[in-house]
Amino acid sequence: MLKTEENLANLRLGKESALSYFMDLYSHNLHFFAYKLVRDKDSIPEIISDSFVKLWKHRADFYTIEELKSFLYIVVRNSCLDHGKAVRERYVHQQIEEENILANPDADILTKIIHIELITLLGEALEKLPKQQADIFRLTVLEGKTTTEACQELQTTANTVYFARSKAVNTLRQLFLKKNISYYPLVVFLYLF
């Protein structure tokens, strides 16, 4: 966290290395967030780049990491909504579906931000697991594959899959309990979205 705070101070001073730090830190999550909103892989890099250009222009306005992060998400959200409007103008036949999606954009956006943050948290937790446990958890829980499919893909036995999944779930549960996050609602939330 100290490195992040230091880079925030350097960003305010106009050091480009600090901008690069925040680009590395947030680009992946912002990309995923934008994709959830526009589902247009070709326009997302430009949306993300523009958000960092705007961050640079307003760099002196940020006193906390939370302000900076909120700014980036809001800029990306607004750019995605603008992109959606442009697409809607080009494709009139999709207008009804998009109006339903955009009826309450703030609630939907917040859900997507939470989803991205939870996926990032889960990804970091999976990196701490042994490779076999992480692979089996990804396949059977996140991707929803059966034990048989996981056995075939990993060339292992059903007992190994059961044991590794059980160990992974217990380890993840303990990691999340330390962060005051209940494991089961997390998995349900990720599965639904």
Rank of each mutant, 00 (worst) to 15 (best):
R12M: 02
D108P: 04
H93S: 14
R88K: 10
A125K: 09
R39E: 01
S27P: 05
D82T: 13
Q94S: 13
A86L: 15
L110H: 15
R138F: 15
I109Q: 03
L30I: 05
H31M: 10
V53E: 15
G144I: 02
Y162S: 04
P130C: 13
Q174Y: 02
F137Q: 08
A168N: 06
T171G: 11
S20A: 11
K57G: 10
V53R: 08
V187I: 11
K145I: 08
L118N: 12
F71N: 13
L139Q: 08
D61F: 11
F193V: 15
D106V: 09
G144V: 04
K128G: 09
I96H: 15
L126R: 09
Q95N: 10
H115G: 11
Q132P: 06
L186I: 02
L68R: 04
E143L: 06
T160K: 01
E127C: 15
N180H: 09
K112A: 06
E66G: 10
I96E: 13
E99C: 09
Y21R: 01
Q152H: 11
Q132C: 04
A164P: 07
E98V: 09
P105R: 00
V75M: 15
T111C: 10
H31I: 10
Y73M: 08
S70C: 12
V92L: 15
L13G: 02
